[in-house]
Amino acid sequence: MRPRQVILGIVSMAVAFVIFVIPFLLVIFTAGKTAADASQIDFTPPVRWQFWQNLVDVVQTRDYQLLLAYWNSTVITVGAIAGLVIFGAMVGYVMQRRDTRLTRALYFVVLSGLMIPPAVVPTIWLLQEINLFKTLHGMILIQIAYGLGFTVLLYRSFIAAIPRDLDEAAIIDGGTPLQIFFRVILPLLKPVTVTIIVVQAIAIFNDFTHPLYYLPGAENVTVQITLYNFQSQFVSQLNLLFMNILLITIPPLLVFVFFNRQIVAGMTAGGVKG
């Protein structure tokens, strides 16, 4: 490494520290302070650390609402991802393998789905009509509908790299379409499936807008909604607000640490292809 690169690296890290790291340090510091200490947000460590106490306070707020929210968010995320992976891979597979006027038209619809903003109020009306408004099932189906574009796009381009010979060998071996899909194709999609799971899990877990519209009600709260709801309550207790921010930042942080490579692959593939 040349001296130039070392100096530039040190300067860049200093700048990145101020712009990107200090805000997160502030979150951690403030989350450990007392309410009085936290009233002014500044870059000083807590006078007295009361990290655990703050954590317990946040969890206990409004009758353990945060725990309920974590449960609801997990159910929605897991349910939606299961649907996205299986149904999305089926679509990507048939779209890639069968190049017909129908599949080409559908591909265009999928692409436009990435662009068009959902029509929220008509969706609420529809959910009410079919009794799925304010239900976790409804929310799962919505997240599947909104995530399909990205998922199908990624699967379709990945399946293009799987040789057709493999399908045909299985056809000659007497495989039914379902057997070929589940026993030959789906296992081969593992790398891209991991990417899709990670990227979509973060997106759905972090989603605020759609639960706000489609999932009102205290018994349906999701993690992002709790944070938003607690804001007014914590207005004079910034230590608790920041503890709350910290708590909902941890899951994506863990995912990022373990799946960095897959996230990067997914974000760039989805982006460059889209």
């Binding site: 299986i86 597979y93 959902p118 929220v120 599947i144």
Partner: peptide
């Protein structure tokens, strides 16, 4: 075909009901 169109159905139904129908309905509403 070994790549049957009905593979498109589960995803297609969800996408049509929860995305396309409200989008089309929004023009009327």
């Amino acid at each position: 075909s070994p790549y049957p169109y009905w593979f498109l159905l589960p995803a297609g139904t969800i996408f049509a009901v929860f995305f396309l129908v409200p989008t089309v309905a929004s023009f009327y509403f």
